[in-house]
Nucleic acid binder design. Sequence first.
DNA 1: GTGAAAGCGCTAACAG
DNA 2: CTGTTAGCGCTTTCAC
Lengths: 348, 348
Amino acid sequence: MPRGSAPARRVTIVDVARHAGVSTTAVSKVLRNAYGASPDMRIKVRSAIEELGYRPSAAARGMRGQTYTIGVTLPDFRNPFFADILDGVTAALDGTDYVQMLARCCNDEVAEARVHDAMIDRSMDGLILIAPTGSRKHLERIARAVPTVVVGRHGEATGYDTVADDDFTGAELVVEHLAALGHQRIAHIEHLETNPVRLREMPNAIRSAGYRHAMQAHDLGTFIDIESTSYSREGGYLGARRLLARDPRPTAIFAGADIVAMGVLDALTEAGLSVPGDISLAGYDNTMFAAFAPISLTTVDQAGHHIGSEATRLLLDRIAHRDRPTAQVKLSPALVTRRTTAPIDATV
Amino acid sequence: MPRGSAPARRVTIVDVARHAGVSTTAVSKVLRNAYGASPDMRIKVRSAIEELGYRPSAAARGMRGQTYTIGVTLPDFRNPFFADILDGVTAALDGTDYVQMLARCCNDEVAEARVHDAMIDRSMDGLILIAPTGSRKHLERIARAVPTVVVGRHGEATGYDTVADDDFTGAELVVEHLAALGHQRIAHIEHLETNPVRLREMPNAIRSAGYRHAMQAHDLGTFIDIESTSYSREGGYLGARRLLARDPRPTAIFAGADIVAMGVLDALTEAGLSVPGDISLAGYDNTMFAAFAPISLTTVDQAGHHIGSEATRLLLDRIAHRDRPTAQVKLSPALVTRRTTAPIDATV
DNA sequence: GTGAAAGCGCTAACAG
DNA sequence: CTGTTAGCGCTTTCAC
């Protein structure tokens, strides 16, 4: 069953101009809501656009001006927290002429850089990089090429704006909550990080630092107990197995991410331990599945929607004012208490 | 803190040509691996590209030839099943010059059409539309403009290739499994669908039909019991509430999607019923959370990875051969038995 | 096998 | 306020 006619030639700005009896400049101006077109002309042009079903080619636009496209990169499509951020971006973009295009920027730095470059090659007007792992130098290179907002990365930044949730406080909230329930042997499973810059900038490292600080602050410094694995289900399983082998074993586990907590649950189930009866468990991210009835995980909510809309606001602002000073927005997380944490009395 | 120097001018094909001492045509040919460039020239050009750090502009390419970008649209970033499909796309694209860009095509048809048009405006070389809700006519219009593969949509198609999992069989697998466990009052929660075309094409409708057919085939026709809500957690909760009000109530519930099963679990927890002790539960999609220890949901695996790679293969093939006949690939689902389904005997 | 030159559709100077 | 014109960076004839 062969295709029918040849793919119809696209309607161009020239067709619209001819149809409306004006110049292409005029059409271009109307398209961009630019200065210098009479109301009368605007009407004529708009109706010609309507009648012909004209749509501007982003490729052609990109060669001279803007593409009205902003690129968003994120490391993982399975973490629902990122979906919240994207919702925020979408909401902030609603009513503007901008469209968002996404790409996943795998885990390793090389693949990530490739994705960022691909965005630049495609003439994005601006970039929102969610939880990038690349070096500061790399991020600055990207930001030199195109207006950029980095989400979920702490520390000073020179060429780009940042939006991040306060992971230090978030971790403190968890420890405080567990300590208030009477727990002392509160262990933490973190994402292994060795790079010194990332130790200062990546959310996982900040959470770990927040845990340590809060433990000290509650006079629980001697009970600090950290397993370094990875932010994944496997990482959680592995970390929990090791923690359960301790004697005495912890009475509470603070997993650095909800997905890690899922791995912890695997290990606890396997060991025949109940939550929170035998051990309390908290996660981080307030992902969708944390709320499911059989899981009901105590966790930290990061207000992803707000993060996304704030990042977008900053980006659009920077596109308009390329050399305003860079801004660093820090948002506050909130503890969400559910059924995986309980008083120590109940434990045993 | 103002930005430093002006954004450096991009390296162009002209720079590369000059640096290598050849024509721009030659560079272009090397870039596209086109015929008509000596090995010697290829080497010269490639090293010039390397030295200058040249990267082709997709916008400029898009005006004459390809952009090496394929667009993927999907309705929802929260359904982890789609992430599996995307992984398949990524894997199939690995090693090619193509890059994928994603966009969410909201729920309603108008917004969806806007997203599809946005993809075309941005000169995508091809489109993979995952579970689109638009009319056949709309899909055909898109496919006329650009090579298109539609994923997760049944029925005949004229201008585009399709890849879909056999939802009819998948639903039958679930019913067979439950019937073999001795269940008779097997209820189903479906996504409400009234549009006649969608009743023939959308996976949710096909699953429902498969359920009905399998019930008949097992002489359980009189026990057919369907609640029409939506494929969402709320839909599952609502449907389950209604089903639990029946007298007698079903001994098993087949939720049309895993996320629906989560809502069912909410309702069951609320009602103080245990799974599978009081009632068996099965989902569909084998999403990530179905495997979590506290959930351990019996479900149907759709081989999302395979779906994605197959769709990509078809798309690249169609980009190369625009008028080969359209293909319709149907993949087979598999039942994944976990701990939410048990023999009726165990169900008091 | 190679290169000169003509656009692709749009925006931005500039002239009227 | 309006139109003419010169590119943006690439691909593609079409000569050589």
